[in-house]
Design a protein around this nucleic acid. Structure first.
Lengths: 127, 127
DNA sequence: TCTATCTGTGAACAACTGTTCATAGATAGA
DNA sequence: TCTATCTATGAACAGTTGTTCACAGATAGA
């Protein structure tokens, strides 16, 4: 029933080769996929999520307050904020010896809201 | 300028203790944070993102076609689909000896779209 | 029942990640 | 300039993750 088909130079057994080829052509390029993975990876850590929650609720804050509110050490907080800044999720402002961090745009809130809906919608349902 | 303040039984130096306390009370509980991290973690892997892209574009498909379209081995594909199914992201339907997988709802597309907007919006901007 | 085919699972391995510790950089005030 | 304070960085360690390999389960057809 499953016919052997040559695809990408390799011989594979496929059920619907035409659909496979069509889907492959419509797929985003590797760079885009990698960037998406990067963004989601940033949001996949509880500590970073807590930091972002704090920034969503409290607005601009210094590292020591962020650390205390998120229940983290200050070094871990600094490492996390550096990552978030490198990926354009937060921005930093210096005021004297203190650094103040804030969210860069509203996408984070949207992402967290959609994910929350999914979490609460899928509870208790079987496959 | 920064006053030592007792919080959670530990003495810490904070700039704005009132705001820290307010933010802490508004923060989602640990379980919710962990569930959010779980969902984002599923989307943080390029292989799983490709699989989801394929399902978004092609609809319901069997494991061998999914593997071919996403450019993965069939075992890796099966492992990935199992994870996605355990977290209610995809659902499975058996037809003979073949398993057909499909997306469970539209949240995945929303999440990917919002993340894409962020990726393209933030390109080339400095901090 | 026996076999071929499609998919699922467990173990093992390398690669990656987040935290901590120690230390360095940067700034304000004396 | 010297010191105290706040933040950033580098190294190292444990913990986690994704893939592959080998094999097991499940189903259709002979």
């Amino acid at each position: 029933m499953v016919e052997p088909v040559a695809i990408d130079g390799c011989e594979l057994k496929l059920v619907d080769p035409a659909r496979v080829r069509a889907v492959q052509q419509a797929m985003p390029d590797e760079e885009t996929v990698a960037e998406l993975a990067s963004i989601f990876s940033l949001l996949s850590d509880p500590s970073r999520l807590r930091l972002l929650s704090v920034l969503l609720e409290g607005g601009e804050m210094c590292v020591c307050d962020l650390a205390a509110a998120a229940g983290m050490g200050e070094s871990a907080t600094s490492h996390a904020l550096r990552l978030l800044r490198l990926h354009q999720v937060v921005k930093a402002r210096r005021a004297g010896r203190m650094m103040h961090y804030s969210l860069r745009d509203g996408h984070v809130r949207m992402l967290m809201d959609v994910a929350l809906v999914h979490v609460h919608h899928g509870l208790g349902e079987a496959d």
